[in-house]
Design a protein around this nucleic acid. Structure first.
Lengths: 393, 393
DNA sequence: GAAGCGGGTTGATACGTATAGATCGTGGAT
DNA sequence: ATCCACGATCTATACGTATCAACCCGCTTC
């Protein structure tokens, strides 16, 4: 409250209650105009300790609130006298002014916040290793670009997803990075329709709208893997897909066919089967494949890789040795290597994907009016000991 | 735009351009008042696709904007006719309305967001195991209480801490959880002075202001450990403190003296030394302690436990065996156990602390005007094989 | 029949900021 | 002398919401 003293005296002078005496320290040279004064008086009436506003800065510096705003955000061609700028900045310093983000946002300004919405919970320890690299990339890049990171944690638990709790979930951020396997397509479509800026991690095609995403390139390394298998003598190759039937699975299947074509395999020798988890993989099914002439299985991995691990376990138990009798490869992140087993697979560059997603989003937010951007990033091959040359019988 | 059709017709009716014809579907029974109409016309003039506002809802439902707001946030005694409520909610449903968080915030409402400011970077992998449990607790509790979590990542890299970038850092959230060993006391004091609601994780005393924190109880388990050592025959006990001289170190020293008093040890037999890292722990220093009669060392741990590990290494190298010649215990989190060594220590309940911090903060935000709250949570003892009965020579 | 009451609704305003448009000197060109 | 340009600043308004005071209307009460 003592900070107001000079301004108060200045007010008294205006009202004729006091003689104009120049405070030695920091009294506005120019008496404040009636306009800002009225605002300021109204402001002073309010109770309780409040954060200083531009009006108070203006009052203290003897300028109008507009000028304060100009000093703060000006720069591009807007002329402000050096002396004025100095006085305003001094007042800002004195009062410890900080712009009210809510008011800025209301004027349509950016808040420098990007949201991170994960369709599953993020921090749980069991999936930590899966999501953490994405988080790492997102956080790093956001920090580098000067954005804070808003984690939408509350929307997940309360069922209803993005549009939970009166569907205002994501609006707190300037834009949003969406992440998660079990995403609601409706939510995505709605967001796109509303024009909310967001980037999805992972490929999704939504009809009618084109959305921004950054996704790993599953096609190329899958094709390469299939060609490699063909070169090792494999003819009958099986793709074990996740039952969700999402785009990543489609990409892998496309890679499979593309590789087969390049290696002159007959399309009829490609088998595609589906699984929704470890329970689907029974002994009969696996031995059936082998009896059917399948010598190589390429697996679309899930977060916990349960399907692939079950396959290996069942096969071994049934006497089908990997890789001697059956080559197995993961079309993505494989289970961690053990003493005897390094899975042939390819690594998804999660950190880089997180980074790229933020970059795309910031482009969307700051850049000129652009169409949605899609980015596909390459994976790196991991060659282990789970595939081998086929032995002709 | 087709959604506006009924409202548009309604406007035409008002202006006399059209005959009042009741749309079969959803036309406001009551013609909108001139007031909301003016607002609505002004709104329609604006270009570009925009999110629907309360004014549009009001227009569509044939009520005033105030009523819409009442329907949305009312409940406590404010009477709204059931029919009105229905119409408004229908309009909200139709247009997909979502309250603008910025406008709410500007009116001084809570945004249901709590900030998390870490004085060091959070996600880096090397300190992941240290910070992750706190994060986990904070995130869980925030989600449970319906708050989103805002990570202030941008403020850290840009030097300047809390008050970086025009010192508006934390204002985006309703309140903030602060975390980190190398905190700026000035920042804490400033925040408290400004009346910004926050809770610090870890004990800090700031003169002149009383701030909210939740911290582990270092005193009790330290005292217990010292009593235990005394019971094992130790007389001369050394406390190895971190040089930062922060409150956690003070607490441990207090625990040391308290335990010594309870065990009837002579105060002069307590030695307190400081270290800022592994480099401080030389062979001469350690052997000096032993020669001086010290039989037990209790170590204040750092994030990476470098000091304590260095102590063990140097001692072993100098032929001082642990625990036979020298008992060593950690006053907090110890290095992970190995095949031969389990460190005697106590575990800080990080997840619970994170949870408690959020609870305190939410209390601060939603509860009545209360004084700052401090919370001290107990640790759990870990008894290993790094201390033993002293052998009298 | 006037006064009081209370449920239901509306007009108006404030929140703090950014910015378009107006104003006002001042100096230079016509 | 007039006009224009321009630098510097000001007035005024919009952003979308919450809320207070006022109001209207039908009913009861004296």
């Amino acid at each position: 409250m003592p900070l107001f003293a000079p301004a108060l005296r200045c007010l008294d002078v205006m009202l004729g209650k006091s003689t104009p005496c120049v405070h030695p320290l920091r009294v506005p040279r120019v008496p404040p105009s009636r306009y800002v004064l009225v605002k300021w008086i109204a402001m002073r009436k309010r109770a309780g300790p409040r954060r200083p506003t531009q009006v108070e800065i203006a009052q203290r510096a003897g300028v109008s609130q507009a000028t304060v705003s100009l000093v703060l955000n000006g720069g591009d061609g807007v002329p402000v006298a050096e002396e004025t700028r100095r006085r305003v900045q001094q007042a800002i310093e004195d009062l410890g002014y900080a712009a009210n983000p809510a008011a800025r946002a209301l004027r349509g300004m950016t808040v420098k916040t990007i949201g991170l919405y994960t369709f599953e919970s993020v921090f749980p320890v069991d999936q930590r290793d899966f999501y953490h690299p994405f988080l790492l990339g997102v956080e790093e890049e956001a920090a580098r670009l000067g954005y804070d990171l808003l984690l939408f944690t509350s929307a997940n638990t309360a069922q209803g997803g993005v549009y939970a709790r009166g569907r205002n979930a994501l609006l707190k951020a300037d834009g949003c990075v969406l992440l998660g396997r079990h995403i609601s397509r409706d939510d995505l479509a709605n967001l796109a329709k509303e024009g909310f800026p967001f980037v999805f991690i992972g490929r999704r095609d939504i009809s009618e709208t084109e959305l921004s995403y950054v996704a790993p390139d599953y096609v190329t390394p899958t094709a390469a893997l299939v060609e490699e298998l063909a070169a090792l003598g494999h003819r009958r190759i099986l793709l074990l897909r996740q039952t969700d039937g999402a785009e990543p699975g489609d990409d892998r299947e496309r890679g499979l066919r593309q590789g087969a074509r390049a290696a002159n395999l007959h399309p009829d020798d490609l088998v595609v089967e589906f699984s929704s988890g470890a329970a689907d993989i029974g002994t009969d099914r696996v031995t059936g494949w082998v009896r059917d002439g399948v010598t190589a299985v390429v697996v679309e991995p899930s977060e916990d890789n349960a399907t692939g691990l079950a396959l290996a376990e069942v096969a071994e138990a049934a006497g089908v040795r990997i890789p001697d009798h059956l080559s197995v490869a993961f079309l993505g992140s494989a289970p961690p290597p053990t003493a005897t087993r390094i899975w042939t697979s390819f690594e998804i560059p999660r950190v880089e994907i997180g980074r790229a997603a933020v970059q795309l989003l910031v482009n969307l937010l700051e850049g000129a009016e652009q169409p949605p951007l899609q980015l596909v990033v390459p994976c790196t091959d991991v060659r282990g000991n789970s595939i081998s040359r086929v032995v002709r019988r």
